[in-house]
Simulated assay, not measured.
Amino acid sequence: MIELLSPSTVDATARVLTDHGFSVFGISTTALTRSVCDDAVRENGPVALIARVGDEVRGVAVAIVDAPRYWKKFMFRHPLFACRVLGKRNKSSRNDAERLAAGVDAEGDAAAFAVNWNESSPHVARVSLIVVSSSSRGCGLGAEMYEAMFDHLRARGVVTVLARIGAANTASLQLHRKTGWTLGRRGARWQALKEL
């Protein structure tokens, strides 16, 4: 059963996300994961869906509408986290500029970059994570979660969804192709774009 994250499922979902290395700006902590889950059960928070079998959470998908605005507000509420992010981002900004200057690789579609990853708009959502437990992989659960997520995002006025995928994550690339995303690659990272 696929459902929106609720207060009764926050703890189990936070554990699954932590176990799968959920991170924000390259930082992964249990408290951070719990804070994002708590936000997801609030009105206009991130869209977080879980796939459950009985009491066990088998999959989680999280998308954030107008992500730059959300993260600015999040950082204001969590100033110590903001300091960690700023320190980390200053170290990596030169590498990001060099990587982006490389352009789109031949196997990718430049249309995947038609919307800037950092665009702030209530009509654009970014997928933070989609994960399916190893015991449930290969049975279409990821595609089902995406379809449910797209319905929730459309209801909030979202027309464009973005995702980033590591080049080595072949299962995720396959899922995004199967669910109709446009994919383009820069360096070691793919960007996926889905128009709703």
Rank of each mutant, 00 (worst) to 15 (best):
K72C: 02
V53Y: 06
S35N: 13
T30L: 07
G54K: 02
P79K: 08
L80P: 00
R15W: 01
S8F: 04
D55I: 01
V24D: 04
T18F: 15
Y70C: 05
R15C: 03
I27S: 01
F25G: 01
R42Y: 00
A63V: 06
L5K: 05
S6W: 00
N90E: 06
T33E: 04
G26A: 11
F76C: 01
F74L: 06
A82V: 09
G87W: 14
D38C: 11
G21F: 05
V41R: 03
R89T: 12
F25I: 00
A51C: 06
K91T: 03
L86P: 00
T18E: 15
I64M: 11
A12W: 01
N44V: 00
V85W: 11
V10I: 15
E43W: 02
G87M: 13
A67K: 11
D55T: 13
R15S: 12
T29I: 01
G87A: 13
F76I: 07
D19K: 09
G59S: 06
T13W: 04
K73H: 11
I27Q: 09
H78D: 04
P7I: 02
H20Q: 07
S28L: 00
A67S: 14
V47E: 10
R77L: 09
D38I: 06
A63E: 08
V57N: 05
V16H: 11
R34D: 11
F74D: 02
V85L: 12
R42H: 13
C37M: 12
R84D: 06
P68N: 08
T18M: 08
R84E: 14
S28F: 01
V47P: 03
F25C: 08
V41F: 10
A51W: 11
M75G: 14
P46H: 10
G26Y: 09
V47M: 02
R84W: 14
C83M: 13
V16T: 10
M75K: 12
P7W: 10
G54H: 10
D66G: 04
K73S: 12
V57I: 14
V41E: 09
T9W: 15
R89Y: 11
A48Q: 10
P79A: 07
D66Q: 05
L32M: 15
R89N: 11
K88S: 15
L86D: 02
R15D: 13
A82C: 14
K72T: 08
R58K: 13
A67I: 00
G59Q: 08
I50N: 02
M75Y: 05
D19C: 01
R15M: 03
P7V: 02
L49S: 03
L86E: 04
F76H: 10
T13P: 05
L86F: 11
Y70V: 06
N44S: 15
P46V: 02
T18H: 13
I64G: 01
P68E: 09
D11S: 12
P46F: 07
D11Y: 03
V60Q: 01
S23G: 03
G45F: 08
N90W: 12
V85D: 10
S6E: 08
D11G: 05
R15G: 03
R58C: 12
K72R: 15
F76R: 12
D55A: 13
R15L: 13
S8K: 14
Y70S: 08
